[in-house]
Structures are given as structure tokens and as C-alpha cells.
């Protein structure tokens, strides 16, 4: 029987899925559905397209899972696959691919739509929304997907220095806003 639990790494789960324990793929979906959906929201800016996009990404991931060869982190491989699929889908539905300086629909930036449950996430969400649209996804990739500057550059082709300066600004704001808050009090204990 499989010894997979909530503490198992993605790579351990994927290895078992490749060996035939298909039902374990559910763990991967549970872990990443909101993250992939967020990529969809950044690209398509509406719930329905993002929902379809999320389903398509996971089905594609399952189809191609044999091609993940344990080189690097699974989440990087998944993010790259999702981003490329999103860009292709954007092109195919002939929406504006440039993403320059657009803002999200009012309803998609309202707090009740955001999955940012605590203080830290709220601060970061506000900072992300201040950025030009095309850079927001970089902060998503850095803070929520746990990718490095180089990995984000490899996926999005946005220059490393641009990614670095946006992440730096977000971290700086995060730190300034966290000082003297509950989070700091907690940290003191």
C-alpha cells in the first residue's frame, strides 16, 4: 500500500502516480488547485475561463506526468506547464495577450474573492495589486509557488532584475507593514 500522507513531498506522490497509483493524483490537485486557478485569474481575469483553465491544466499534467523526470522541483514543472498552457489558450481565444496596465474586474479584486486569510497575505495582496498587471504573476510565483528569480525568469521571460526589484519592493512593504503588528508580537514570543 502507499505510504503517502499530507507531509509527503510532491515528488514522492508523483513517483507513485507514475507507477500506477492514479488515485494519489488527487493530493496534487488538492495542493495546487487554488494556485493554478490564481494563474488563470491573472491571465484571463474572469472566473469561468480560469476554472476551465484549472481543469485543463490538471488533465494535461496527468497526461504528461511520465515526462516529469524528477529533475528539479515538481512545482516548477507544473507552474511552467500551466503558464505555457495559459499563454497558448489566451492566444487561441484571441484576447489581449499584452496584459499591459490592465486591471482586474472589480469583482475579482474584491476581498471576498481573495484567498488571503491573514494579515500577511492581505498586505501582500494589496502590494501585488499595486503592480502593473504583467508583473503581478511574478509575485504570485515567488510568494505563493515558492519559485526562485531564475525559475520565474525561465517561465515568464521577464528579466531577472525586474523580478528581483518587484519582489524586493513587495518584501520591503511587507516588512514595514508587519512592524508593530500582531505578527511581530507573535514573533516576539
Amino acid at each position: 500500500m502507499s505510504e503517502i500522507n499530507e507531509y509527503s513531498t510532491d515528488e514522492q506522490i508523483v513517483k507513485k502516480v507514475i507507477k500506477g497509483e492514479v488515485r494519489l493524483f488527487k493530493h496534487i490537485v488538492d495542493r495546487y488547485e487554488n494556485k493554478i486557478f490564481s494563474i488563470g485569474m491573472r491571465l484571463f481575469k474572469n472566473y469561468d475561463d480560469s476554472y476551465d483553465f484549472t481543469q485543463e491544466v490538471f488533465l494535461k499534467t496527468f497526461e504528461k506526468i511520465d515526462m516529469y523526470r524528477n529533475k528539479g522541483q515538481f512545482r516548477f514543472w507544473l507552474t511552467k506547464l500551466a503558464y505555457n498552457h495559459g499563454i497558448n489558450k489566451l492566444g487561441s481565444i484571441k484576447k489581449d495577450v499584452s496584459l499591459n496596465n490592465e486591471i482586474l474586474d472589480e469583482k475579482s479584486i474584491t476581498p471576498d474573492k481573495l484567498h488571503l486569510k491573514n494579515e500577511i497575505k492581505d498586505i501582500l495582496a494589496a502590494e501585488i495589486n499595486r503592480l502593473p498587471e504583467k508583473y503581478r504573476i511574478c509575485l504570485d510565483f515567488y510568494f505563493f509557488m515558492g519559485l526562485s528569480y531564475r525559475e520565474i525568469n525561465e517561465i515568464t521571460h521577464i528579466p531577472v532584475n525586474t523580478i528581483k526589484s518587484n519582489v524586493f519592493r513587495a518584501k520591503d512593504v511587507l516588512l514595514k507593514r508587519l512592524k508593530g503588528t500582531i505578527a511581530e508580537d507573535y514573533n516576539e514570543m
Binding site: 488527487k26 488547485e33 487554488n34 494556485k35 490564481s38 476554472y51 481543469q55 484567498h115
Partner: peptide
Amino acid sequence: LQTGSSFKLESGISNNI
């Protein structure tokens, strides 16, 4: 932050998948 995401699905999709 790594446990979170910017947006959330209204309901999980793992069963559909």
C-alpha cells in the same frame, strides 16, 4: 505565504478531475 494563493476556487475541483 507558500500555503496560500491570490484567488480561491468557490469549490474544489479534485473530484471532477
